[in-house]
Design a protein around this nucleic acid. Structure first.
Lengths: 155, 155
DNA sequence: GTTTATGCAAATATTTTGCAACGTT
DNA sequence: AACGTTGCAAAATATTTGCATAAAC
């Protein structure tokens, strides 16, 4: 089970297994594709464990990022967000398309970067361990809503 | 000249041409590839114009982002940064490789996303107007420094 | 029993806003 | 003259830290 693996990883590093840490991970894992902020994690976690503190959320997500269990992502909207890490098989090569009109974040899978990564190693000696692609544009609904007359704005 | 074009764009939108706005753009343009934070822009701008206020920097970068003259980028290190926009020919398809060891940000050019963008339009109707690729990994120097014995950490 | 983590409150850091004075049109 | 912009200070947000208590090992 996923949780057992996490406990192991904590112990390996001399970190303690606490209810708070398990709960934070469970909360993030329980909301796949949602890119939660610290505040959102806090609100959700409080439902299960009302005495938890916000500082614990911040400290815990730092640990989880450190352990490569979750990833930090930001969509430049002023919030730092967290999602299950790319080390987890099911979210490897998981990227984001952000609508500049409505702010909706669409997740998509894609695995088209291998050649790029190889070129980077060949030219600069940089070893890629993870990648994230952020695409900005307009989603279907916003295109429909804005209509044909404003399309020249689109670049 | 670049500056004249900017003044036009401001006037087109009914915004005023001020020394502060010109200076902020000039400051960002004068530091290509540096991804300045608001605070850094403030410090640099003060050298030219000591009475400028930090709030003006924040308000101006918002305007510049709005006008697509600069882009907001974040490397998940807690700072929001700005760089000349992708609308500018010379930085189109300009991406970032971030070393997780030393934090160095390498910029590179790449134009390998066309097929991905086409697929996104075909499957989800999403029109891409800009893209950013963030690669995380280890730069040449850090690989050398860490040596062979720690390589298993790399994933 | 020792060490690490938690919760709270206070401290920092970052960004936004209200408003009178000022600059641009 | 009208209106948008600036600078300052205050407010609002977001995140980190110190410390005594509590939990994990």
């Amino acid at each position: 089970m996923e949780q057992e693996r996490f406990k192991e990883v904590l112990r390996e590093r001399g970190l303690k297994v606490t209810n708070q840490r398990l709960l934070v991970l469970e909360t993030i894992a329980g909301h796949p594709g949602e890119h939660l902020t610290a505040e959102e994690i806090y609100e959700l976690a409080k439902e299960q464990y009302p005495e938890i503190g916000l500082a614990t959320i911040y400290r815990t997500v730092q640990v989880l990022v450190e352990l490569n269990v979750i990833d930090k992502v930001s969509f430049d909207d002023g919030f730092v967000r967290y999602e299950l890490g790319s080390a987890k098989a099911d979210s490897h090569h998981h990227h984001h398309a952000i609508c500049q009109e409505c702010g909706r974040v669409l997740a998509f899978e894609g695995d088209l970067l291998e050649t790029l990564e190889q070129a980077l190693y060949d030219t600069m000696g940089f070893v890629v361990t993870d990648h994230e692609v952020k695409l900005t544009g307009y989603c279907k609904d916003c295109i429909k809503r804005k209509g044909q007359e404003n399309m020249e704005e689109f670049n």
